Simulated assay, not measured.
Amino acid sequence: MTAIESDHEGLLALIGKDYYLDNLSKVQIASRYGISRFQVARLLDEARAEGIVHIEVRFPGNLDSIDSRALAEQLGVQKLVLTRTLNDDVLQRDLLAQAVATELMRNTKAGMTVGVSWSRTLDMAARHVTGLPRCEIVQLAGALPSSGNSNPLELVQRLGRVSNGTVWPLWAPLVVDSARTAAGLRQQVEISTALTKANSLDLAAIAIGAWGPGLSTVWDRVDNEVRQNALAAGAVAECSGRLISAEGRPVRSELDPRVLAVTLEQLKRTPTVLAVAQGAARAPAVRAAIAAGVVSTLVIDESLASALSGKPAA
């Protein structure tokens, strides 16, 4: 047990190998390591979420029938990157994360200022980034309570180590209880510096959420009155806590002054914005973000691409 505790990631790798490569059952693995089969299941999920175990599943779909260049032109984005749609949510997120990581490594140049927001997909993407030229890394959104073991600060620090560049953390929550509290936090040097660095971004990576239950991490962190007021104000999309209407306009609800994150105006001034979204239900939100002018490269799965193109998913 001491060895297990001292090398948790090693344990995840061993259990992943036993299960996925050697075809051992969870009961057999549990017996081998002196743990329960329920712990084995949890550790296998963790190994996949951490990127220690990577699984690529290819199966028939309609991805090949979608012309990514034509759809990019139709949507008004510079580039569209498509992945297949999988039934497993963790595997789906990891597939999108790999595509985001590839685009980050491909587009980051030495001396750039790169901003990264936080989402579960972007967190996984950072784990797939194996190398970046020396650049500045800026945290674009404050932290939200999470059931996982990751946070925005760890994400940017991880990218900072890969790039050997300066990291500008945002030492604040994403959403606070009042506009007055947020205003006070913005006066702190560490926080104001990070927020100001977002004025000079060369590249940004963000996630697009839809303003609805299960489609935005922020939705679940505010009370129902805030949710409904934002809906009444026209919110359909959420990016780093910033709400967007279907027409692409910023939604000025009571939530906006309580958010500590990059603004839509700052993202619009950023030359390259890499945005990721998952699932057909986020199609209206993606259209809203594009209309807002905050998407250059879009990374999505085939079900979302089908919804955006108007074609039924296979």
Rank of each mutant, 00 (worst) to 15 (best):
V176E: 02
A194S: 14
V167M: 07
L155H: 03
N164E: 15
E238F: 04
L174G: 00
Q187H: 12
I208E: 04
A183W: 07
Q187P: 03
L185V: 11
E225H: 11
R158A: 10
V259T: 15
L195S: 04
A205E: 07
N164A: 14
L195F: 11
G184E: 14
V138K: 06
D220P: 01
L255R: 03
P213T: 14
P133V: 05
S200K: 09
P152E: 04
A126L: 06
L203M: 08
I208C: 09
Q228C: 06
V176N: 02
Q188V: 13
L170F: 11
L174S: 01
S163I: 02
E136R: 14
P213K: 14
S147N: 12
N151G: 13
I244K: 01
T217C: 05
L132G: 01
S216I: 10
E238K: 05
S253L: 06
N224I: 13
S119R: 00
R161E: 12
G165L: 05
A205H: 09
E136H: 13
D256H: 03
A172K: 02
R249A: 12
V156I: 11
E225V: 14
A204P: 03
V156W: 00
S178K: 08
P169T: 10
L140Q: 01
T196K: 13
H128P: 02
L153T: 15
A204K: 00
R252F: 10
G165S: 08
R161N: 11
V189A: 12
V222S: 03
V251D: 03
A230P: 03
L195H: 02
V138D: 10
G131Y: 07
C239L: 13
T121M: 11
L122D: 00
A246E: 12
A246M: 07
G131V: 04
G148H: 09
E154C: 04
H128E: 10
E225R: 15
I206L: 11
V236L: 11
V162K: 11
A125D: 05
R161Q: 11
A194Y: 01
V162A: 10
A143Q: 14
C239S: 10
L140M: 15
V218R: 00
E247R: 13
P145L: 05
L144H: 06
V156N: 01
G142Q: 01
S192M: 07
E136M: 08
R252M: 08
A204R: 01
R180H: 09
V156G: 00
T121V: 15
P213I: 12
